[in-house]
């Protein structure tokens, strides 16, 4: 069972929020003693997702949680927006697919960088992405 040890909410509405957000994620990762490579993977994945949220939904909210399961601890991030939603999830998860002018690596790349990845979206209502990176994952 995954237990939440601490919770921190942050709303993202401007591009300048990206840097402080990355710092908050880093703080959570450092707190549980996550190594530098996993920290970098987590923050990079978070950066991809928060950019998506900003670009396609004009912002949203991120929940930063420190969680534990047995002896393992990790950081869980939940990105929630009230944007247009994603019509075709499997297409959105494909490398190189983008409706914007980007490389199309954001979602599939972020998934590769973390241990758990969950994407839920309803067209017209919004998108929620949850990622989890274990300390030793």
């Amino acid at each position: 069972m995954v237990i939440t040890l601490s919770k921190d909410r942050m709303s993202i509405s401007r591009e300048q929020d990206l840097v402080p957000f990355r710092n908050r994620v880093k703080e959570a990762a450092v707190k549980i003693g996550m190594g530098i490579v996993n920290q970098t993977k987590l923050i990079t994945a978070a950066s991809e997702l928060v950019r998506n949220m900003f670009r396609y939904a004009g912002g949203g909210e991120v929940l930063i949680e420190v969680v534990s399961k047995g002896r393992e601890s990790g950081v869980r991030l939940t990105f929630t927006d009230k944007g247009p939603g994603i019509a075709d999830l499997s297409l959105a998860m494909q490398d190189g697919y983008s409706t914007g002018k980007s490389l199309g690596l954001g979602l599939p790349g972020a998934k590769r960088l973390v241990n758990e990845f969950d994407l839920k979206s309803t067209v017209g209502q919004g998108t929620t992405v949850t990622i989890l990176k274990w300390k030793n994952g």
Binding site: V37, T40, K41, T44, E48, D95, G109, L113
Partner: peptide, 14 residues
Amino acid sequence: MQPAVAITLIELGL
């Protein structure tokens, strides 16, 4: 480039 950044970039697909 820091080693952790290099590892992450390649895994990301870049």
